[in-house]
Design a binder for these strands. Structure first.
Lengths: 106, 106
DNA sequence: ATGCAATATCGGATAATCTCGATATATAAA
DNA sequence: TTTATATATCGAGATTATCCGATATTGCAT
């Protein structure tokens, strides 16, 4: 009985959790702004947090949260950490969300 | 200086708020389940809340929240209230979110 | 090793969310 | 008008989120 190449068929519970965690991560204006500020490319925390206007510790925690939600990637660059949007699929969802918002508010 | 048919050009602040409110509304497993249960069509609260397994008052509040976030529509039908997904654009966003989740977890 | 700059973590204060039971309101029917 | 059903609102306790300053850690250069 072939069912595709997935051994453990996608658990609905896990799927639901992942989706709510995704939404929770973007349910805060600061975090959404951080993500939006990465649409044009990779940036380090040291660039992000002064322009956000929140303490370094808060922005650090927010960035970790966004990474845990699979929304951002991190990589080291010497003493810094560079953050970027995890996958092109995230771009697509963000774009469709922006469209939904503008059309709904229009 | 023509700028399209929108008098007050879309305020970024309002847009950001709407988007975070949208995500917040879907950041709870119960609320996401409620929305998903409406994918097949309109239903009343009296159908929804027993299968959700939460108190009537909680589900009532959640439904109002989803309406306020422009995710659901309501209409009266006698003593009941029928809820449905607000627009087809919501369907599209939900579908793209489902795809993102399954692909990310795969 | 020492110092510096970037990032992470901890403890805590305040605010928001979740959820309930109890109660109030609204609609329709008898 | 009274009753029954569906929905809404209130008050409260438990949990979680938000944010900070202080402190720890990490990696690089000197």
């Amino acid at each position: 009985m072939k069912r595709g190449r997935c051994e453990t068929p996608l658990n609905d519970e896990k799927l639901l959790r992942w989706r709510t965690d995704f939404h929770k991560a973007l349910s805060n204006p600061i975090r959404l702004q951080i993500v939006e500020s990465l649409l044009k490319g990779e940036r380090c925390q040291c660039e992000i947090f002064p322009e956000i206007g929140l303490s370094q510790s808060s922005v650090s925690a927010y960035l970790s949260q966004l990474v845990r939600a699979d929304i951002l990637n991190v990589r080291r660059d010497g003493t810094r950490k560079l953050y970027s949007i995890a996958t092109s699929r995230i771009f697509r969802v963000l774009a469709s969300m922006h469209d939904l918002a503008t059309e709904t508010l229009a």
